[in-house]
Design a protein around this nucleic acid. Structure first.
Length: 160
DNA sequence: GCCAACGTTGGC
DNA sequence: GCCAACGTTGGC
């Protein structure tokens, strides 16, 4: 039996990847995460079926732009072994990989950006990690109620 | 193991 | 572009 669905927020800068690209790709590998806390989530906690808030950081405005779903559990990030690649890590070995990735699939692109300012102004989201000062972690756990609230904010017409 | 220096993130 | 926050590195 699998555990209950968990929810996550994953950040990416538009210069690196966008939800429009995910729309075209349908599925993508969430690779290049080089932070140990985020790595632990990828390796140990993020599972197939989990919900993902796709967050565009360093954007105008920054915010959640859609929903994705995990379609492959954590596995060693292939780029850590690619010499010359910007994600190459010479200290990582195939037998003891340091970095992990998951695969995600687009579920829906929001009709509008749910901006960080809006998230911060929403009382129900006052404890959400991304609204806290200095929350730089690129993968963050999200509660179901936070996930549902943000999803509704992205689809104002659909919930009328 | 401490901690200063340095690098990165990311909002503004 | 600035800079606060935070993570990592490396000398000791």
């Amino acid at each position: 039996m699998s555990r209950a669905t968990c929810y996550w927020l994953m950040k990416v800068e538009p210069a690196a990847y966008t939800i429009d690209q995910l729309e075209r790709d349908r599925t993508t590998t969430w690779e290049g995460v080089r932070n140990y806390k985020a790595r632990n989530y990828l390796r140990d906690e993020i599972k197939v079926g989990d919900g993902v808030l796709f967050y565009a950081s360093n954007a105008d405005p920054s915010g959640v732009v859609g929903i994705a779903q995990v379609v492959r559990d954590g596995y060693p990030d292939p780029y850590q072994f690619k010499r010359g690649h910007k994600y190459h890590d010479p200290k990582s070995t195939e037998s003891d990989p340091r970095w992990y990735a998951v695969d995600i699939r687009l579920v829906e692109k929001f009709m509008r950006v749910v901006s960080l300012a809006e998230l911060k102004a929403t009382r129900a989201l006052k404890n959400m990690m991304v609204t806290q000062r200095g929350a730089r972690l690129s993968i963050q756990p999200v509660t179901k109620s936070e996930f549902d609230a943000v999803r509704q904010m992205g689809h104002p017409r659909a919930t009328q």
